[in-house]
Amino acid sequence: MQIVNLEEELLDLVGLVDVVSWREAMTGHSDDYDIAIVEGSITRESEMERLKGIRQKARILVALGACAHIGGINCLKNFFEMDEVLEYVYGKDARYFDTIPARPLSAVVPVDYAVPGCPIDRKEFLEVVKALLLGKKPPIPNYPVCVECRSKGNVCVFDKGMTCLGPVTRAGCGAICPTYGNKCEGCRGLVDDPNLDSHKEVLREHGLTVEQILNSFRMFDGYMEVAR
């Protein structure tokens, strides 16, 4: 739905590509495609098969958004037993439904590129699609949110007495959460070589318990080792 929100740019975009299947915005469907853009994490056995089918047909598979990219918020349920979660939500009717621990697309099939974040940045999505059309590697930053936060002239979140995942989280959002008075919650996933030990030490020094440190990573990065 963030893509429907592109509006004018979307109309330009559909002039460049042939959208063959987009259930949320159009009626009609085709299995003949080069690029598949998939959103959401995998939370049922049947979705693994469906994703494998898409992977076979697509030359390029793009994970769209935090859930597809890193597992995202759905992975919060992975810290409970699946039977217990089903029982909690559906009670005596739990038997009708199935669920497996949530995982990113890359846990099931090879993924070529990702548009990170929750929500995705609409402009970044356009950049990724343009790069793919030109046969280039999409330009996703591999430096931490702190770089963008400093360039905005924000007061460091730690200096305001809060804690933040900015030092280990992939930039590209323009440090939007610190800019609007909040902490970075890590929705874009970790940079490629995060210095996690040192960052956990910083969080400890700022008074967070081990449980609180894990909880801060679990919000979006629950599938990653750092949160377990």
């Binding site: 939370t43 049922r44 979705e47 409970f80 979660v85 439904f97 669920t99 909880n215």
Partner: peptide, 19 residues
């Protein structure tokens, strides 16, 4: 797919829940 938000927010601080 069911998503289980009610189960997932257990154990989280009140301040995180709206996000």
């Amino acid at each position: 797919a069911p998503r289980f938000f009610e189960a997932m927010v257990r154990g989280r601080s009140y301040a995180d829940v709206p996000h």
